[in-house]
Design a protein around this nucleic acid. Sequence first.
RNA 1: GCCCGGGUGGCGGAAUGGCAGACGCAGGGGACUUAAAAUCCCCAGGCCCUAACGGGCCGUGCAGGUUCGAGUCCUGCCCCGGGCACCA
Length: 830
Amino acid sequence: MPEYEPQSIEAKWQKVWDEQGAFRAVTDPARPKYYVLEMLPYPSGTLHMGHMRNYTIGDAVARFKRMQGFNVLHPIGWDSFGLPAENAAIQRGTAPRDWTNANIEELKRACRRFGFSYDWDREISTCEPEYYRWNQWFFLRMFERGLAYRKKSKVNWCPKCQTVLANEQVVEGGCWRHEDTPVEAREIEQWFLKTTAYSDELLDDIAQLEGGWPERVLLMQRNWIGKSRGAKVKFAVDGLAGAGIEVFTTRIDTIYGATAVIVAPEHPLLAQLLAGAEQGTVAQLNRLRQQSVREADLATAEKEGVFTGRYAVNLFNGEKLPIWAANFVLLGYGTGAVMCVPAHDQRDFEFCRKYDLPVRVVVQNPESSLVAEEMGEAYTDYGRSVNSGPYSNLSSGDAIEKMIADAVARGFGEARIIFRLKDWGISRQRYWGTPIPFVHCASCGVVPVPDDQLPVLLPMNVQLTGMGESPLARVPEFVNTTCPKCGKRARRETDTMDTFMDSSWYFYRYADPRNDKAPFDPAVVNYWFPIDQYIGGIVHAILHLMYSRFFCKVMRDLGLVTHDEPVKRLFCQGTVLKGGTAMSKSKGNVVAAMEMAEKVGCDAARLYTLFSAPPEKDMEWSEKDVEGCSRFLHRVFRLLEKHAGGLRSARAAGATLDLAAASEKEKALLRKAHQTLKRVTHDLEIRWHFNSSIALLMELVNEIHAAEPLERDARPEVIKEVFQMLALMLAPYTPHLSEELWEMLGNAGGLGKVRWPAYSEDLAREEQHEVVIQVNGRVRGRMFVESGLGEEELVARAIADPKAAPFVNGKRIVKRIVVPDKLVNIVVAG
RNA sequence: GCCCGGGUGGCGGAAUGGCAGACGCAGGGGACUUAAAAUCCCCAGGCCCUAACGGGCCGUGCAGGUUCGAGUCCUGCCCCGGGCACCA
């Protein structure tokens, strides 16, 4: 008897699929489309089961949707620019391009070995000029619309390497290559994309994603955009006529409690404020400016400030307040300055306690129990204004309204909405990325490269040392050029783009991947978009998805697409762990994908990946459990192999079955099969609980086993029907085995055109149900009753049940709860 | 620090507010075998009562609450994981 040999079966069917071009997507407006996409993978070189989970989920969905008759687009490509290639070059001297392409080959080999149903004709790689020229093209379009601009901003600077470091290259405040060198902050001129031009829309359109995206991702996006309503208020500067400091506050009602004004260490007014100040003050300020750029570091760093020696004037009451500069005030948020109200803001409270600034209560709690000297933390709730001049005794809400109105009338304030969202800093002082298509000309300034000169090619054979400014700056044949405007000698921009640029629009390119006239043909994109199902890690819940949404809106305003949002449904899968932590090369806990395929076959590896946990949860990889799944597939193969010979010539019962003439065993088999089909379909299509649907298939197989010998009381057409349903239900999970089983059962032509089986309510119907009898919510008995029995009858039988009766007899029945076919609960008193 | 998520047997997990632990792994017992592997069948949350059949009580991170009924809903807490704008 032939054995299940996954390796040969898998090779056999992959060859057939290749020859048939089985997964090639053809743009065809006459057919309903389904675009399913897994997030663009970074080809990192160590290919483990953590990566494969994402593709396995996507492939199950793609295959299921094809079986439902959809025209499925399921593409793949490579996020092939980025820091690791450059780090490898610095550390091992490999050329980024060679290193990257070798990794891509390996990843591609694994994807093919796993039989993922990608349309390989649409493969893209973002480091190829055919792709990144369109990054440049989009960048120029944004520049034309005022959405790309330059400004100074902070980077991590290693004074030893004389180079800019990524956050990842900063190890506990030091440089990754020599950790004893502290990293400094340095301000340089960089390119930004104006994501904030779409703040309101990015926030409002989240409503369109409701229901299709995980609620937690939408929440994170909302928080990230961080819309807050408040007021901008000007403080005069004592002794500097005409100068003013504008602060943003959501709690203008606490302004009488302000005991200082604090500006960011980089605040432009500081130059004026500190003119003639002591050297010590300037030195302290410079130290503050050196602090880390990272929000997490800022938030946990001890609050530090410097008194400027100057005073601001609160224009509500003329009070003079010291002006400080402090590390917890951010230049990029609001106006870069705050009023410091220690009694009612926790950060201000901590700052004032440290520097002995006064605390003054101006909002009382309902008990009126707040006393400044006794406070252990700020009181940040709303309450009743006190010590606030004419605004005393108002509720916080009323005070805010009245004070804004008065500030507007007196000309020193206004209502203001601000966002936490920042513009997207896109410059990288690195080699392995898309060159920014601009030229610096001594006479014309910053000049865009004309479209017909795109792409600006990234030069190859560049020596990477990890030292000095942007690597491209040391490639004369790249840097030296002529100004497109005046023709004089000019210098190319040597920064490259953030790789998030690549991944913000790549899914549009899949629709029309070989277009050399435009990023894509809008008509083709409008057929395939929006993406019906996007699948990826929760790690991308904010940045990648926010940038992609921004890009979509820019494209829409450029007239390239007609939709507002690129992704209709989003699914975030969990991480694959080994030994409690995410698989990674550096931790040495990877389970290599190719090894799994060789050991148990890709079908078993895929099945286990889906069976082990619901897809959104993290899963711990267990070698033993993989074997369990492999065992199940062997069991299924043996079961069908045993019967296939006798069934090959039979015709499956399908809709032609006469239920009245069916034997009890036939009915039982069909009932179980159709009950399974109903729940498997629901778990696969609606709930995305692949694990429980696989459990159901295991139950079905167990039940078929228990019904052996099958032939005794069941006709071949019924057995064949049930086996075919089993093969088809397995197909999204174990496509190779399903093809083989389908063929074993005597079907020619493969599964390519075969539809998902049709569910029959009649065949699935149970004749009897077990009903639980509860008394006061506790299980006291159970009974078998015919399906669909009425409530009265159910209650009557429950009360008469010998086990339940003693708990009811002699007591007053207060309430009866009946769940038909399931449960009766008798509530008794006393 | 801020934002988001998660805690159910020995383990992975199952359960539209309705029998907690389906299915699988590991474990125990049996069949087959000269033997082992493979395969097939059975048992299996904890504690207690019973010779046994059976039966009782407890149990979903902790403490409360809503409900006839809570793993599921609400409030507070504890622990663990992810993100925080130059890793992708």
